[in-house]
Design a protein around this nucleic acid. Structure first.
Lengths: 140, 140
DNA sequence: TTCGATTATCTTGAATCTGAGATAATAATA
DNA sequence: TATTATTATCTCAGATTCAAGATAATCGAA
């Protein structure tokens, strides 16, 4: 009987993504941020003002965690909660100047870091990898 | 300024691996197991008797978490702790009959499930994906 | 042998996440 | 309008993880 998983592409895909995830976690930790915290800031940086709900859907985090993580980022002065004038159930969240400054500082390095991870591939290899991954992803 | 990450292979790699991770989590949850718990059982199923330390190194989990997860699996009767005769610091862990039965039952389904995720690729595409991922992984 | 270093496991406390349920506001409908 | 359903956020308990430190055993060198 086969007790070990021998599916090579599966093992490699998971190993590689975990390795990348861990390296990125380290990078983000340099700003004393967790990945969830960073993801919130990233959404706000990209999209501007968002509701808590919108952010949570975007980064796939429960409402309980959203309250928690936004509390922490607010205490740290990186974002602010603002009541919504039209709908008093809603809270808008925006980056503070400090938050913006942090992201302006960090994001170029961050993108550079990610690009660097794929340096070893030629452009045609990148294209091939993208096509193969799309095929897999669409099946999952 | 570029606020959004446009690195396609990166985004696809992480999206795909997360999607796969989540699907596998669901599969494993059908046995009322978490991924860490399952990983422990998997190691024991593949390698037979192991020390707690060995398992922890293998699945990259801290010693504190190992105690916790092995407690739970032991309480559920899926594995047992056995003192080591030679070295009294060490505890050997083995699957119980129940644990073995569970794994005998589940593992074929599990491997089938994983293979199924890559059904959409031809064998030459699988090979290409493997080569590309190796290249990326070795760089990270 | 004896003392210090190392090793394996466990304990504890803090961090983070989820899910269920509470609260409050809004929307929809009779 | 009154009632009901839905929505957004928050609260809380429980699960899981890690890091640091405690405990106990073993190893190694003087």
């Amino acid at each position: 009987m086969e007790r070990k998983c021998n599916n090579q592409p599966y093992l490699l895909l998971m190993q590689t993504s975990k390795a990348i995830h861990d390296r990125i976690k380290e990078e983000i930790a340099k700003n004393k941020l967790g990945i969830t915290e960073f993801s919130v800031l990233e959404v706000l940086y990209q999209k501007g003002k968002q509701t808590i709900q919108q952010i949570g859907k975007c980064i796939l985090v429960s409402s309980g965690s959203m309250t928690y993580v936004i509390d922490k980022l607010e205490q740290r002065g990186l974002l602010s909660r603002n009541a919504c004038a039209n709908d008093r159930r809603v809270i808008h969240v925006t980056l503070t100047d400090d938050g913006n400054e942090l992201m302006n500082e960090f994001m170029p390095k961050y993108h550079e870091f990610i690009n660097h991870l794929f340096d070893s591939l030629h452009s045609d290899e990148v294209e091939a990898l993208v096509q193969l991954l799309k095929k897999v992803r669409n099946k999952v």
